[in-house]
């Protein structure tokens, strides 16, 4: 059951990371196409800049969890390196729980941030119809999986009593 949950969360975090870099590649092509059409045909795309604004949250928030799995998020190890492995494990559990709690409330509040925008169909001040929520939805999704990843890591740490190894 727990293993299945782990597999599921990992699948989701990888899936949304793939989506994230697909958006990065798409944005690259969009900007290049915009420049090309503007310079050679004087027909730029109507709202590249605003679309970029909607892309960025997908680029940024969605890989939060996978970055955690891969150990990309930075932390200061100056002090924790010097204490016993068991104390390191306990400290890591504490900071993970703190992060999970923070991630949880940020998920909730970013969900509200998104759902309000969605409920009023809030559109951007752009030359074509663009909805703010297209970007805003990425934050609660990214934060939720991020939070879950913190919790799963904590469970693993909990079980790893006496066998902690810093990744």
């Amino acid at each position: 059951m727990y293993k299945a949950l782990r597999r599921l969360v990992h699948g989701v975090e990888v899936g949304i990371t793939v989506w994230s870099w697909s958006v990065t590649l798409g944005l690259t092509l969009l900007i290049v196409a915009d420049i090309f059409l503007r310079y050679f045909f004087s027909r730029p795309l109507p709202a590249t800049w605003e679309i970029g604004e909607l892309c960025m949250p997908h680029v940024v928030f969605l890989p939060f969890a996978f970055a955690l799995t891969r150990g990309s998020h930075v932390r200061v190890a100056m002090l924790t390196r010097r204490i016993s492995a068991e104390n390191q494990r306990r400290l890591r559990i504490a900071t993970n729980l703190l992060s999970a709690a923070l991630g949880g409330v940020l998920t909730l509040y970013s969900w509200r941030y998104f759902s309000f925008s969605f409920s009023i169909r809030e559109d951007m001040l752009a030359a074509v119809r663009l909805m703010w929520w297209w970007g805003k939805i990425a934050m609660p999704v990214g934060m939720a999986i991020f939070t879950l990843r913190y919790l799963l890591d904590t469970v693993d740490l909990w079980r790893a009593e006496g066998a902690f190894k810093d990744s």
Binding site: I31, E53, M56
Partner: peptide, 26 residues
């Protein structure tokens, strides 16, 4: 404070001034 934290993070990240970051990282 939470509402502000969310909108501050979102606002910073969605700004197009930072589009260059993931692209140059790539």
């Amino acid at each position: 404070a939470l509402e502000m934290s969310v909108s501050a993070i979102y606002g910073k990240i969605s700004g197009t001034a930072l589009v260059t970051l993931p692209l140059f990282i790539l």
